[in-house]
Amino acid sequence: MTQIVGGMRGPAGNLDAVRVYAEVARRSFLRHSTYRGATVAGAFANTVFGFIKAYIVLAVIAQTGAINGLDRTKAVTFIFVAQGMLMLISAFGSTEVGDRVKDGSIATDLYRPVDFSGYWLAADIGRAGFLAIFRGLPPLLAGALVFPIGLPTATVRWLEFVVCVTMSVALASRWWLIVNLVAFWTVEVRGIRSLGIIVLNFAAGILLPLQFLPKGLRAAAMVTPFAAMLQRPVDLLLGLTSFPVVIAWQGAWLVVMESAVRFELGAAVRKVVIQGG
């Protein structure tokens, strides 16, 4: 079993693997591009929540002035960029892998001659590529119609942001793998997934930008991988932090989480029970 999970090795294998991953990502992009109605509806919902959140936050800032560097413009920009990023990091949870464990089709995934974790990373990158354009931009554009939005003009900043968001997608992809693979032991992961969603929404800065939290709570949230998924990249876009800091946090957490995925998967396939018959 572990041999299969290990995937392809050797120089020729590596090249093939890259091609396979690129193809997986491309197909994933195309697959998500077919859900047109759902994409429009989802972008609409993200935008509506963005408006409400923006008004709440503005009502506070109107009384206090800038909060930890977030003035009116920066706070509103934060909210609409964050609303656009929600789907990239599956802020409301991802069920795909858990469902596949539950119905047994995970066996097919384990048979594949590609690395399991790499396969899902490629699929998530492809999906995120589509969502970045069609779920990411609409809330921002709609927000800009009503509120003052301030985005950087320097190309370098945008390039850095794109790199960091790609890292966010990878981090979130690892996070939901860790959560969903628990299904190997419990079958039903709805409860654990709910907890995952709660922690993520709080610590990533989705509930409120972390600047709004009291000092201790903010500091605690900032060290989590969730802050590295959303809060830190958005801070970077707003010029509140620097690229090396963000990428260092993301890189460190990616190593930790990828190791966790591999450890968990290793343990799972040693005692694997495939559901169904």
Binding site: Y35, A38, A41, G42, F44, A45, V48, Y55
Partner: peptide, 19 residues
């Protein structure tokens, strides 16, 4: 496939009426 569209009014409405 209008689920999320509906969510904007149901959950969104609930969010808005908390304040």
């Amino acid at each position: 496939s209008t689920q999320e569209f509906a969510n904007a009014f149901t959950y969104g409405g609930q969010y808005a009426s908390q304040y």
